[in-house]
Design a protein around this nucleic acid. Structure first.
Lengths: 132, 132
DNA sequence: CTTGACCCTATAGTAGACTTTAGGGTTTAT
DNA sequence: ATAAACCCTAAAGTCTACTATAGGGTCAAG
């Protein structure tokens, strides 16, 4: 399968696939005489893996690490994999907490504002942002 | 007050202050003969405003917009301000939702993993990321 | 045998929010 | 008077994850 077909089968754009190759995430099985990349089912599987990993919040660097573990499964322990996953979980949760705090703070000052057509001369939102 | 003192009083790095000036967020009251920026209490207030706005999730572009409203309070209505705040609230909430989904998905596959010292040959996390 | 779809490389650009570098004046304390 | 600390500008670099551009081969169909 050439890159265009791989693109259709995975939803990743052709440029993205070449970019992922440069990042070391995937690589073609070989090249045709004319230099075209050739891919097989394994590439397809790897890209599905990448899609899934992205969807649960892993960065490309982290995915690269996970792909290594995936390929070298027998040389690595479950705990190694779980540790990475748990770290990501902590990161996601701390982002959620941060955003929750933002939402609450913003909610509070937004609720206090009348939102009416009158000039914002003493707008509670602007005032709230003023007073530290 | 020169830029170094403003930096100390606000916690923003000197380079960041100059960067903010380039972005149109702040500007010195004037310059000394030798070209040094000079700031007053208003700069301090603006930077506190910026800090607060950042802390509730506004981007620099949005803060720039808010600063304009802040300065031209009488020419703008409360509803203008509130609209911006509410839009941001919606954005923050949708980010939270997205992260919640990620957390749940990751939680599910992480919980299923034993996390033990055995090889990751049939690690449930790696498998989960494999199977779309 | 030519046209269009497809492929290649290398390099640059995008967004956001800064940080770093290079090169060079000014002020202040000793 | 000199060294440290501080200030200036312009331009380039950082990070993430791509996207776009320029310029140029290859393959299948008509």
């Amino acid at each position: 399968m050439r890159i265009g077909e791989l693109s259709k089968n995975t939803g990743f754009q052709v440029e993205t696939l070449r970019f992922y190759e440069k990042q070391g995430l995937i690589s073609p099985v070989g090249r045709t005489e004319s230099g075209y990349r050739e891919y097989d089912q394994e590439s397809l599987k790897q890209l599905h893996f990448i899609q899934q990993a992205k969807s649960v919040g892993f960065s490309l660097n982290e995915i690269s690490e996970l792909l290594t573990l995936r390929v070298e499964r027998d040389q690595h322990s479950c705990s190694e994999v779980k540790t990475i996953a748990e770290q990501k979980l902590v990161q996601i949760e701390s982002k959620i907490n941060e955003l929750n705090k933002m939402r609450d703070a913003l909610h509070k000052i937004t609720d206090a504002c009348c939102g009416g057509p009158e000039p914002a001369t003493s707008c509670t939102i602007l005032n709230a942002l003023d007073n530290v």
